[in-house]
Design a protein around this nucleic acid. Structure first.
Lengths: 209, 209, 209, 209
DNA sequence: CATGAATGAGCCTTCATTCAT
DNA sequence: GATGAATGAAGGCTCATTCAT
């Protein structure tokens, strides 16, 4: 269950430089992937957008797929970090869950393009790299699950264990929805409205007889 | 808002033949796209898998993207038809909604691979073709919305209009979830369990203080 | 010990065409390999020299190494055929061996450039292809050995078995010498002189006390 | 016909250092060339195998081809030296020639890989460098020729002048044979057997009527 | 002197598309 | 209508060489 970070081999030795160059690279690649997708972006374009030559690009990666991995990894890391940061509340009771959902939706909204790219292109990752990335998804799910379980422990929510998982997945996916279906949803709702409606639905379900 | 079917130009006149060849083509292409994705599939492979030559393939389409359009269109049509077929019930009250959700999840489960392919590759469609396909998504949403509204009209559900939309989207996306997150979800739940849990959640929300 | 011909896969089906195109390709490639060696020759150059486009080249081979294999194979085949043709004599006694050596040296002289290329570049063949080619060398050796053995059977030569092998190898290699050391040898001797001297040496050795 | 040693320019002044670094370099390069050939070896690999950086490598050479020249030159020098050392006998008569051949074959056997590399890769040398190296080959031939001529002078061998040259070339090439055709010959004979058979053949030729 | 990051020309190969038969 | 050979733009990647530190 350990999830050692997969490291992409480099020809360059200086760790400082690696960090710097990869940041440039990721930034450039994300911009391009958002614009035209992974397959339609060439390595030459990535190099240029990153501010260095094609030769230099390949000093920091072995293959184009490495760029994708680096990009997906960075985006996940960013989302997770932001989320973790926002979850760090002292709220009590159901408020805690509400705030978590709000925070999560907010993070997704802030990183719409990145999230979109990641979910659309990750499938092009080589098998092993994909596993590493999917593991991150599992971790995200667990973070949300934990918030719910905390509420259960506190006695503010009464649901069976299986339902916890389903609800966690639902919340996650409702975040994705906000980006994937934005051409429909963001025309109809503001983020705040969307958040409120989803939280309401989450807590009360449909009010039926 | 018009939804005229976008037609792909052909060099061949005989409509019967067009229909036949395109069916072969779609069947072959879906198989390949499922296996290796749109970008990694070559037109030669599509022709071969379809049972005719590359030259013939290009008698029935203008570009590789046309194949993708035909495939996405066919899959949507199939999903919509199957769903429409299953919705055709005489159920009353909340049961009607429950059955709709069940039916929808069942359809998705039956067409997992196709649904997965469609949602993953549609983004590679040229702008205009993408619009046509997304329109189908809107229609699907409306079908679900209609079921909910019917319940509202019948007086078995009391929710505001905005919530109807959100719930419809949620249901749709929970269907996608069943395929997109199958590596997590299908390990944890059977389709029946998943369906029941989602319906329960949908109707009652979280049982909280 | 069977030596099935290794066939290079093609995208083209018409065997006539394959034969024709490959002949063009081999001819062009030999010319280039002679001029600048295998590694310094580009696939584009091969295509151009063969009279077709780079795309077409790759319809008839899978990799650059395939060209080298085709070239080596063709040269060996040519040398072997020519030699076999010339060996087809009715000579008796030692004359038979003399004629064989003459014929062989003549063939080598006629195909100097090709022979040179083949022996210099074959090492770049992938392992398996190299084996196929080396097998041809074995067959050549056996052809020469056979001529010697025939003389032994006829009772015109008396040498032990091991010596037969060594002599056969020597003859082969003295042929190669004529091309590999041409910058020295061909300055000093005409082919006829060289042939006579080698035959004399072969038969009598050094006349020593 | 002058045979001035071609010197490879350096950025470094200190002759001691140059000598030391080049020895490292040659040792490393030979190892790599034996393993994968000149063209498949990169300058980076050479630097690494030599124990210094790519930058340093280029302080001691101007181009990759310089490395090849240095390597070929060093190998030839080594072969020549070893041979000269072994020839330094006091033997008389035909024994002198026999010992020379034995010694030469022994040297070749000891340096198989190096000899193989040199003869296979020297062709990639730039024209001028190639001439320098070939000159070494001439010198080797002359060394052998001299041994034969000494025998002729001593009156133990009676052959015409032209034959002397041919025999010298034959001996040289029979040495190469031992490495180039090792996949055939070394399977059939030990070095001793091979040496004896070749000497026998050299002296007596084929015993024919 | 030594280092190693940067460069970019150039290589091999693929593949969507066309068109003569 | 069907076929498949031909095309060449374009892509991913390598590697000899340079030069600032």
């Amino acid at each position: 269950m350990a999830n050692l970070k997969k490291t992409v081999p480099t020809l360059v030795k200086d760790p400082e430089l690696i960090k710097k160059r990869r940041e440039q690279m990721i930034k450039g690649a994300v911009r391009l992937f958002i614009e035209k997708g992974f397959h339609r972006t060439t390595t030459r374009e990535i190099a240029k957008e990153s501010g260095f030559s094609i030769g230099t690009l390949y000093e920091y990666i072995r293959s184009k797929e490495d760029v994708l991995y680096l990009v997906c990894d960075a985006i996940y890391e960013e989302v997770k970090n932001r989320l973790a940061h926002h979850l760090d509340t002292n709220s009590q009771g159901i408020t805690r869950l509400k705030k978590a959902v709000s925070a999560y939706f907010q993070v997704i909204d802030d990183m719409q393009d990145e999230v979109l790219v990641m979910y659309q292109e990750a499938k092009s990752l080589p098998k092993e790299a994909l596993s590493y990335v999917l593991q991150k998804e599992v971790e995200m799910t667990e973070m949300i699950e934990q918030v719910i379980r905390d509420c259960v422990s506190e006695g503010v929510i009464f649901i069976q264990d299986a339902q916890v998982k389903v609800v966690a997945h639902n919340i996650l996916v409702q975040g994705h929805m906000w980006t994937f279906r934005r051409w429909q949803i963001q025309k109809q709702f503001s983020l705040e409205e969307y958040t409120n409606l989803q939280i309401e639905q989450l807590l009360q379900g449909i009010n039926y007889k």
